[in-house]
Amino acid sequence: MMEFLAENGNELLVKTGEHLYISLVAMALGVIVAVPLGVMLSRIPKVADRLISFVGILQTIPSLAILAFFIPIVGIGKFPAIIALFIYSLLPILRNTYIGIRDVDQGVIEAGKGMGMNNLQAIIKMELPLAMPVIMAGIRLSTVYLIGWAALAAFIGGGGLGDFIFDGLNLYKPSLILAGTVPATILAVIADRSLAAVESKLTPDGLKDSYEAA
């Protein structure tokens, strides 16, 4: 173990960094695109169901295949890896944002409107805060998935902990496979915990209490 770390320690750190970078950038892109899209979809429920099932289909394409498809279009390296992972991150965030906002109590929405909230105020002051726990659940889920899938980035030269795993497979060296897998798992757990902390920060106090009460 110590021996292995002495030999590969530096590389392990670099790869972990890459891995984290790929997954987080993809996740951030996913949030930036999917949350506003989800809010928009909540205004047009008819289109929403169709679009969400379409994105669901994208999700079923095997990840290796998506990575392979992207090689002719955007080449190899980190960028195509990020694009592919970004597509995977969309569905959970989009669906949870849409459902979270759709399920906000209609009485509250009507009161807000009747008080004279315009559309933007309704979204920012009312719908997003109330849907926050559901939206964050989607973001957490998709982040944990992304950290797992990011291992495949190595397949198209994106780097990351996947490099260790593929090397290990090719050289029949279980220690290398472990060196790729264990840090990825730890990363996933840490990411999930820190997002849980973000979630409790973003969830309005009044909602937290009412969950405890319920």
Partner: peptide
Amino acid sequence: VELRRSIGYVIQQIGLMPHMTIKENIVLV
């Protein structure tokens, strides 16, 4: 929007904002 702000509105479902304190709810307008 302006019109609604100048007319009070009370509904059966009450519709207080669960994430706001009573004070914030009262002075929402």
